Computed example of a mutant assay.
Amino acid sequence: MTAGRIRTDVAHNARVWNYWLGGKDNYPVDREVGDQVVSLYPGIGEVARADRAFLGRAVAYLAGEAGVRQFLDIGTGLPTADNTHEVAQRIAPDARVVYVDNDPIVLTHARALLTGSAEGVTEYVDADAHQPERILDAVRPVLDLGRPVAVMMLGILNFVLDTDEARSIVRTLMAAMPSGSHLVLTHPTLELGGGGNAEAMEFWNRNATPPITARGRAEFASFLDGLEVLEPGIVSCASWRCATAVEVAQFGAVARKP
């Protein structure tokens, strides 16, 4: 059945991810599929938590040391603790944050739960990552594309199955950004361990939406072409500027547009 555009009979990534993070914004089908994925790949919960922690560290660096005041978070997912605007505006109350997602339940919860600082701006755009020009048109009234922007694409390019299309999306977005902008990426991989990950992804693609793909280091690096990859480079997202973290099967990187 559906509630508006919301499908409650098919597991959806945003809601399953919310379940793995301990949230309550999910349906029985999301929990059933989520539990099956965990049985195939027990480390998926650690991946979800590591990806979220990476977001916090990356945004804190960008809003703090790098002095970025504008954030474009594409594929935001359901709100949880320490969302992009909360981390950024704690450090820089005047930070402007635009969230982009095309799942109606995500947008409903985002509008209801996410409120920004009085000095800053927090906005939401209903758009698909496959349509970068539409995203750019929608954010121009909110973000000044003449000033640096941090483009956040955490766990989103893995839902763009064609690698050439994924590269084109990144190129289109970053071409519109000025020097000093940053790209923040995470992406699942089979190259950092996690024996059941491939089988879990196959199960996901048969039973949930949207379909997903893993990529290797070379493909991940190609999304960063023309940008200056910041230290420590392309690493497990759990290890990015976090020396004590356990490695998870998810690449993470932050890169600067020269």
Rank of each mutant, 00 (worst) to 15 (best):
G146T: 13
P141C: 05
V100S: 05
L145R: 08
Y27I: 05
G75I: 08
P132M: 09
L185Q: 03
G43T: 11
D101G: 07
R15H: 09
D137T: 06
L21F: 14
L107Y: 10
V29S: 03
G146P: 02
E123K: 05
G120H: 07
V47N: 07
G180F: 01
A110F: 05
L21H: 13
T172E: 08
D82P: 09
E65S: 08
R90V: 13
A95D: 13
V106T: 07
A138F: 04
G43L: 09
T115D: 12
T80Q: 02
S179Y: 09
T8V: 14
S236D: 11
G195R: 12
R147W: 03
G67Q: 09
E165P: 01
A11D: 01
L192F: 02
V184I: 08
L62T: 01
R90E: 09
R90C: 11
S239D: 15
V139Y: 10
L40Y: 04
M152N: 13
S222A: 12
T80V: 14
G195W: 06
K24V: 12
V149S: 08
R140T: 15
A245N: 06
M201F: 15
D103P: 00
L62E: 04
G75Q: 07
R215S: 00
I91M: 07
G216M: 00
L72S: 09
L62F: 03
R241S: 13
E86R: 08
E199V: 02
G216N: 04
T80P: 00
R217M: 01
P188E: 08
A214D: 08
P188G: 12
D137S: 14
G116D: 09
E228N: 03
V98P: 06
L190F: 11
G4F: 11
G193K: 15
G226R: 09
G226I: 02
D30A: 04
A200F: 05
S222Y: 06
A48N: 11
V37Q: 03
D126F: 03
R52H: 15
R31E: 15
L185G: 01
E46K: 12
A66D: 11
S239K: 15
A208N: 04
T8W: 00
S239M: 15
V68I: 11
V97H: 07
L224E: 06
T163D: 13
A129I: 11
E32R: 14
A81V: 15
L183C: 13
V97I: 13
E165H: 01
T209C: 13
H187N: 08
P258M: 08
D82C: 05
V160C: 05
R31G: 07
S168M: 14
R140P: 10
E32G: 10
A243K: 10
V106P: 04
H85F: 00
G120Y: 06
D144E: 10
H182K: 00
G64M: 01
V33R: 14
N207V: 14
L114C: 14
A14L: 01
A249I: 01
R90F: 02
R96L: 05
L190G: 06
A176V: 06
V106H: 05
E46V: 12
D82T: 12
D73E: 11
E119T: 15
F220A: 03
R57H: 12
L21E: 13
H85S: 03
H187V: 00
P211M: 10
F203K: 10
D51N: 15
R90I: 09
S181G: 14
M153V: 00
G252W: 03
Q89I: 02
T84K: 03
V254C: 08
V184Q: 00
T84P: 00
